[in-house]
Amino acid sequence: MWDHEIRAMASTHAIIAASVFMATVLPAVLVPGFSVYGTHLLWLYSVSAAVTAVSVAVFWLLGITPPAKKHTLGYKLSRLLRSCLYFFLSCLFFHTVVVLYGAPLIESALETFSLAVLLTSLTTLRCLCVLGPNVQAWIRVFSRHGAMSVWDTCLQITVACTLVGAWVGAFPIPLDWDRPWQVWPVSCSFGSLFGYLTGLVAAPAWIHYHRKQLTYKCK
């Protein structure tokens, strides 16, 4: 029964990964002077935008987003507004966390915030898509018995991979190699993106190999 869902997940992830690829290649063709290191922020925003747009579209089309309780327009609108608010708050949250981890407070605030936007679009956005604007549910998902569906498990894996990737991405910064990718926040955004892509691959694979053990409580 899950083969269908796993296949859907794999194809979704393929589409998202392709969008990341396109977000890197297209500006390189269209924008003169574009490079991943040189105009890092531009690349960062293009990736964030691409991932945001594609994930929202795909998850909406697939209908994984939890069904609205009421079908009035006002309710839907408020949900949308709340989602936008959560998105923004999550950017601020990530910004704070990154600063607490030792990012410069004032000097490169724009770079730090861009990293926060990238992290938000890779993690929080997925939570919004899968669980809706419901922080209680988000916290619940990240527990051992919290996953209610295959998509929840997939969410756990991708979010963990992204955050661990960003964390590991900070490791090369103190080294004295003087490489262009050691400049803040290049290594961290690379790390989080690599982590995310790994998560995209790993989640369907892991679920596929553990499909016998996975049991979900119904809501």
Partner: peptide, 11 residues
């Protein structure tokens, strides 16, 4: 706290 939450003990 992340570990505690993973074990479902935080809430």
């Amino acid at each position: 706290p992340i570990h505690l939450n993973w074990d479902g003990l935080l809430l």
